[in-house]
């Protein structure tokens, strides 16, 4: 590190602050205005918000139904390989054998070998990715993903279709409520990345016309596990 540059910039900041006019500055930052609670169940709010950002929702009552749903969906698409988080992180017992019986294998989203490019090229043709959200944000229809050795970023990025499993008890009203939840701040540094996904990849750069699937997945499927109410 260039110690001179660091010292100079810090000193410049301190000098500037003695002359800075900062309207609205106060001694303490007050708490943000709190959002009123939703009148309806969070799952219903989430469903509407996800649809508004072009995501697709698949409600299922329990983990077994989720496994059956994924197997059928992928068989129908002719999928043979799925780029996935570690099965242990998915909490879908019986997923691997059920898929194996249909000739589908889970490929871990990892990059550890000596030839990074070769590995990426090997993973690139896999048609579907599978993750399990660590939280869902009802108001915005977002899912929260974490990244670590068992939770590869590529699973939600490289394939053109992304399936994410979410449980109704993981739903929070909104981003602010999730960020304030106990444990979020404490666990934060365990993950090299935290990604909030709100709908499939999109662009509107050309003539301000919305197009899905710019660089990331063009389809986002959320399998929501929980009792329907």
């Amino acid at each position: 590190m260039n110690e001179t540059a660091r010292a100079v910039v810090l000193e410049r900041i301190r000098q500037a602050l003695s002359r800075a006019y900062l309207p609205a500055a106060s001694r303490l930052t007050p708490p943000p205005p709190s959002a009123p609670p939703f009148a309806e169940p969070l799952a219903a709010v989430f469903a509407r918000a996800l649809a508004a950002v072009y995501g697709q929702l698949h409600p299922v009552p329990d983990a077994d139904a989720a496994v059956a749903f994924l197997r059928e969906a992928w068989v129908a698409r002719g999928v043979r390989q799925v780029l996935s988080w570690e099965p242990a992180c998915l909490e879908l017992p019986g997923l691997e054998p059920a898929l194996a019986a249909a000739g589908i294998v889970l490929v871990p989203a990892r990059l550890g070998g000596p030839d990074r490019r070769a590995e990426l090229n090997r993973l690139e043709p896999i048609p579907v990715g599978l993750t399990a959200a660590v939280a869902g944000l009802a108001r915005t229809g977002s899912i929260v993903l974490a990244a670590d050795r068992a939770r590869g970023r590529l699973a939600s990025l490289l394939p053109p279709v992304h399936y994410a499993v979410l449980r109704t008890e993981q739903l929070y009203p909104d981003l602010a409520a999730w960020l304030a939840a106990p444990g979020v701040r404490r666990e934060w540094a365990r993950h090299s990345s935290t990604i909030i996904v709100t709908g499939p990849s999109r662009t509107a750069d050309i003539a301000q016309t919305l197009t899905l699937g710019a660089h990331g997945p063009r389809e986002l499927h959320v399998v929501l596990i929980g009792p329907s109410d």
Binding site: A49, V53, S193, I196, V197, T198, G199
Partner: peptide
């Protein structure tokens, strides 16, 4: 948008 598609920390 309610949130951008990808908010990456």
């Amino acid at each position: 948008q309610p949130l951008s598609t990808y908010t990456t920390f």
